[in-house]
């Protein structure tokens, strides 16, 4: 498999009244052709901000991309001119946002909004764009697409809006689709519809997907490889089966243990992770998870571990081997 998209040492900060928040602290990842990469973490862990940063979609100020590269087709997206970047965004990299209620413009019809990227990126005329928009709505299984194109976003249900958003993101046949919590605002039966849709479109269109979510269940069903983030750092990276079968970072382990399982009749107490994630006003000198970690050793408070290889295609940022309790 060839590497399609890669991010190197990305750092993003937000300058707020309370101080500078270090939201993304040196994130590196690569996306292979045809693969689905899941990025998991809790709110504020930097999973969305890192992806938004690479397409320069964060407001600057207060945001600032301090360092890093985002290489797509041999070019660094962070160094492109606005005009050049515009040809990448929406055309070659599609983006699906979390909230289908607010990511459409309420005063334009769905049709107009679906046609816009087609006219801009692919140079279609109105008629061609209209036909293609109908095709796209059909692809995401919205009934009566000819009529629905004339509707305004408020006339669509949440699930349909998310379908239309996916149609828009895929309309220019991008090579990469970045989906930022695309099912979080939806009910579970509608989430199942959307996951089913994306999985079948991936087969049909052969694109690569970055799927950002906080739901470890969703990732288990959709991703080939998973990245776990905490406090702006990648703390673990593995193939999906390895991550769930043998989580190596105490945070991943804690998250998995704190989840009750639908398919298991257990009444035992949930293993919760005590405390709350930190807001980083300074880059930590030691492991940002140390204060909540039950495996903590002295070294954890002296030095922040970087990602190290702990198995085949499996990396974790932790000084401790969670299976022996000893230092790696």
């Amino acid at each position: 498999m060839a590497e399609l998209y890669s991010i190197k040492d990305l750092e993003t900060q937000f300058h707020t009244r309370e101080g500078t928040v270090h939201a993304v602290n040196g994130v590196s990842l690569s996306l292979q052709e045809g693969e689905t990469l899941g990025i998991v973490g809790e709110s504020g862990c930097g999973k969305s901000v890192s992806m938004l940063s690479t397409l320069r979609l964060i407001p600057q100020p207060p945001g600032e991309i301090v360092a890093g590269e985002a290489i797509f087709q041999g070019r660094d997206l962070l160094k492109l001119s606005r005009e050049e970047l515009r040809h990448v965004r929406g055309a070659q990299i599609g983006f699906v946002f979390q909230d289908p209620m607010t990511s459409f413009n309420p005063v334009h019809t769905i049709g107009k909004q679906l046609m816009e990227p087609l006219e801009i990126h692919l140079g279609m005329n109105k008629k061609q764009a209209w036909d293609r928009a109908i095709e796209m709505l059909k692809m995401v299984r919205i009934p009566n697409p000819e009529d629905r194109l004339k509707d305004y976003p408020h006339q669509f249900s949440g699930g349909m809006r998310q379908r239309a958003m996916i149609a828009m993101a895929l309309s220019c046949s991008p090579q990469v689709l970045i989906a930022d919590e695309p099912t979080t605002a939806l009910d579970v039966t509608i989430q199942a519809q959307i996951m089913d849709l994306v999985l079948s479109l991936r087969k049909e269109l052969g694109m690569s997907i970055i799927w950002i979510t906080h739901d470890l269940g969703v990732v288990a069903g959709i991703a080939d490889r998973v990245i776990v983030m905490y406090a702006g750092y990648i703390v673990e990276e593995a193939r999906v089966k390895d991550l769930y079968a043998k989580p190596e970072h105490p945070y991943t382990l804690g998250l998995l243990r704190s989840l009750p399982r639908l398919d298991m009749d257990e009444k035992k107490r949930l293993a919760s992770i005590e405390g709350v994630p930190p807001v980083l006003f300074k880059k930590p000198k030691f492991c940002p998870f140390a204060s909540r970690c039950s495996f903590r050793i002295e070294k954890c408070l002296d030095e922040n571990p970087s990602l190290m290889l702990v198995g085949e295609n499996h990396k974790a940022a932790c000084w401790v081997d969670t299976y022996t309790g000893k230092e790696r």
Partner: peptide, 24 residues
């Protein structure tokens, strides 16, 4: 509804059949 809930275990997810309800 129960079939639609994702389970945090890729080995289980692989084998599960979801019942996809049409519409809203």
């Amino acid at each position: 509804l129960l079939s639609a809930v994702p389970i945090p275990d890729p080995k289980v997810e692989e084998k599960r059949k979801r019942i996809i309800l049409e519409g809203d």
